[in-house]
Write a protein that binds this DNA or RNA. Structure first.
Length: 771
DNA sequence: TCTAGCTCTGTTTTT
DNA sequence: CAGAGCTAGA
């Protein structure tokens, strides 16, 4: 306890009733939670009786590790710690029968949900432009998070909302969607919450069992909980009222997925006897960073008043940099990164580049490649969303849950075995008409009078037999052996082996990576004393994994690129927040809606407060978006920050941004090696690698950007002869191989050092001659 | 049934 | 620019 300050200490030690810990950014919130758990155990509470809910699986794992080092591993292991979803899924699995589920249920991911909705919209002959899968999925998700079931939806407020936005049929889609999940014996993410709440509401004896078990409940990141989560916690805590929630209303950034900031703002109303603790000392950041962030969040009206302060050094002011384009912004970030590394001698992973939307990562990635800066991109599409991985997983899901129609339709013709769309549609039609699982129809097409020729019927039964065989293997072997068998016998591997295209090679590697993951899972389960790790356990486990949970990249010396949402809870010595432009950050929808605007402001608050000592905010006058150039102006949020904490470096639009001239004293020592300098042609490719996303960068560079860009080349065709060395804005250095055509149709063939041979139309080619 | 190649379109953040 | 959806033709 000696290492805690007074407010932290009292927050840790109070445990007679409900409490709310309002924890400002960088105020040692995780520390308080960890110590509190340890303290409770020291008071004699059994770890088994403590429920601690974190925002990500990774956060749970880290907290367990800390507790393991404070007390012991065995104690840490017995804690019920995890995300809402992972904890509730386990409860649903255990109580499957009471919850009205078959215990072999599988989980549909967000992509599959959308696919199902898309199919439904099509079948109902609704307009797919009005009823966009993503929009409808969002409505259904919102409903579930507000505990509105399909049956209740039609007469709910949400329905009125739909009518107002001219999509009155959402309720029918919701009903059909629910019916399909049920017949597939599947649940989606939101069902984990909705079903748990309903289970507790309808089965008091089950609720009581968990009330007795969870004698103390801790919830982290409470500002980002939704209504369903609030209700479930209330149900669980009803009896003993020993609940401690921790959060910061200023960091509530998940309203789009149903998070309700009112949960934290109203906590003391919901629990009138609650004690409130405020952690206001920031130990993370310099005073300038804290003050800048405070002055920004001050513009929000809707918040709990608190005074976050820092006693660290005053530090550098927060820098604001204006650039003319997204590319220039990216190269500005790169030169500053290099400068920081050279001057302070730290590590690449001291720095992070944060952005509003994932698509912004591309320009940054390209610039990093060019400057030889190692980086990792967090997020984007994760490993488990890749087609080849989803295929294997779908096989595994089908094996444990043969009712799973989503998985069935995914793999029935993968690899191609002559069962096409028409056949599958007939199977589905038959199955739904007779109210039997599709798999049954596939297995005995004749018995169900399926209208197909004998050849097709044979193909169907052969497929069913193969699945039966896999099921038999599963009964005998562990999850890894089963998965291995499936990959080899289903033909997936053979199809990837067919030819050795680079693309297939990497897919194959991914499949092996997946098998590796299964193996690792089985071994870990064994270490924990669970001998027969089953496929079902594995599938449950990966369904809840996210990119943030991926480990192994954490220690690597790389600059981190991620969205601000993904950066929640993290800290970095140096933070670059890019793209502070009206229409991007705040986004266009937020510009007219004050509630959303406040959320975006909180988002920037989160971004700035990730920084420990150095923070740069930047914006670009123009940006490539959807294939064309768009123009932006400076974000209003920059004006929200008190300028006395800012160091504004403006270059003015139109002119090219030259860093060496911009701030000579700052950069002179760290100037980049000139782009004009030629490198030997045998030079290795840039060493930068990205572990989460393969370097799509280089392959994506294959097309010449010509749309909307005025003729750029200032090079006359006369000067271009084979052998001449050139510099291209995007492709780097190269040597001319051939010049053909005349006038505006002149084409130049160039062998680039890194990206190979390209034929460019001279009038658009952004090249300069360098030798 | 399969695939190459074409047109069309475009809020964003994720357990 | 990238992804989805569609069509023609094998």
């Amino acid at each position: 306890m000696e290492s805690l300050n007074e407010s932290q200490k009292s927050a840790v030690m109070y445990n007679e009733g409900p409490s709310l810990v309002v924890a400002g950014a960088g105020s040692g919130k995780t520390r308080v939670l960890t110590y509190k758990v340890a303290y409770l155990i020291s008071l004699g509470l059994k770890p088994y009786n403590i429920l601690a809910i974190t925002f990500t699986n990774k956060a749970a794992r880290e907290m367990k590790e800390r507790i393991a080092s404070m007390i012991d591993e065995d104690t840490a292991r017995r804690l019920s710690m995890g995300t809402f979803h992972s904890i509730f899924m386990r409860i649903l699995r255990t109580e499957a029968e009471a919850a009205g589920l078959n215990k072999d249920f599988t989980i549909v991911d967000a992509d599959d949900s959308k696919k199902i909705i898309k199919d439904i919209v099509k079948e109902m002959k609704l307009d797919d432009k009005t009823y966009k899968a993503a929009t409808v999925a969002g409505r259904i998700s919102k409903a579930k998070n507000a505990l509105v079931t399909a049956a209740e939806y039609a007469s709910s407020k949400m329905r009125n909302n739909d009518v107002a936005s001219r999509m009155p049929e959402v309720y029918r889609i919701y009903e059909e969607y629910t019916r399909r999940l049920k017949s597939s014996n599947s649940i989606d993410f939101d069902d984990m919450l909705l079903n748990t709440q309903r289970l507790f509401a309808s089965h008091p004896e089950v609720l009581e069992k968990y009330q007795n078990r969870f004698q103390f409940i801790l919830v982290d990141e409470y500002q980002d909980t939704n209504f369903a989560q609030y209700v479930i916690i209330k149900q669980l805590a009803e009896k003993h009222h020993r609940v401690c929630v921790v959060g910061d209303d200023a960091q509530s950034i998940y309203a789009f997925r149903g998070a309700n900031i009112e949960n934290i703002l109203q906590f003391t109303r919901n629990y009138p006897e609650a004690k409130v603790f405020k952690l206001e000392q920031n130990y993370r950041s310099t005073q300038n960073i804290v003050s800048a962030a405070n002055s920004l969040i001050d513009k929000n009206l809707h918040q709990i008043k608190k005074t976050v302060f820092s006693e660290n050094e005053v530090g550098e002011k927060v820098e604001v940099v204006e650039t003319s384009s997204d590319r220039e912004e990216a190269s500005m970030v790169c030169s500053k990164l290099k400068m920081l590394k050279n001057r302070i001698g730290g590590d690449w992973n001291d720095s992070a580049v944060l952005y509003r939307v994932n698509s912004q990562s591309r320009v940054i990635e390209e610039a990093m490649l060019k400057s030889n800066i190692p980086y990792v991109i967090y997020g984007g599409h994760s490993f488990y969303q890749r087609a080849e991985i989803k295929d294997v997983v779908a096989y595994l899901k089908l094996i444990v849950n043969e009712a799973d129609e989503i998985s069935l339709t995914r793999v029935i013709n993968k690899p191609a075995r002559g069962i096409g769309g028409t056949t599958v549609a007939r199977v589905a039609e038959r199955a739904h008409a007779l109210d039997v699982p599709m798999f049954s129809v596939v297995e005995s097409p004749l018995q169900y009078n399926l209208d197909v020729n004998s050849g097709t019927a044979k193909k169907l039964t052969a497929f069913a037999q193969m699945i039966r065989e896999f099921q038999a293997v599963r009964r005998e072997k562990d999850a890894y052996e089963t998965a291995d068998y499936v990959v080899k016998q289903s033909g997936i591997l053979a199809a990837l082996d067919a030819d050795s295209k680079e693309e297939l090679e990497s897919k194959k590697e991914n499949v092996f990576e997946l098998l590796n993951g299964v193996k690792q899972f089985v071994e870990e389960e064994r270490e924990e004393g669970r001998e027969n790790a089953d496929l079902l356990d594995y599938l449950n486990n990966i369904a809840l994994l996210t990119d943030a949970d991926a480990d192994g990249t954490d220690d690597a010396s790389r600059v981190r690129l991620m969205t601000i949402h993904a950066a929640k809870g993290l800290e970095f010595k140096n933070v670059f927040v890019v793209g502070l432009e009206e229409g991007l950050f705040p986004g266009s929808a937020a510009m007219t809606d004050n509630t959303e605007l406040e959320e975006e402001r909180r988002l920037l608050y989160v971004a700035i407060t990730r920084a420990m000592r150095y923070c740069v905010l930047s914006y670009a006058g123009s940006r490539f978006h959807n294939g064309k150039m768009e123009y932006f102006s400076k974000s209003r949020f920059i004006n929200d920050i008190d300028h006395k904490y800012l160091n504004i470096k403006s270059s003015g639009f139109g002119r090219s941004f030259d860093f060496s001239k911009q701030d000579e004293s700052f950069f002179s020592r760290f100037r980049q090696p000139s782009q004009q300098q030629s490198r030997p042609f045998s030079a290795p490719r840039p060493a930068a690698t990205s572990t989460s996303t393969p370097l799509s960068g280089l392959t994506r560079l294959t097309h010449i950007v010509a749309s909307n860009t005025p003729p750029q080349s200032n090079v006359s065709s006369g000067a271009l002869r084979p052998g001449v060395k050139i510099q291209h804005e995007k492709f780097g250095t190269g040597r001319v191989a051939e010049v053909s055509g005349t006038g505006t149709d002149t084409r130049v063939t160039i062998d680039f050092e890194y990206v190979g041979r390209k034929v460019l139309l001279l009038k658009y080619a952004k090249i300069t001659i360098i030798g």
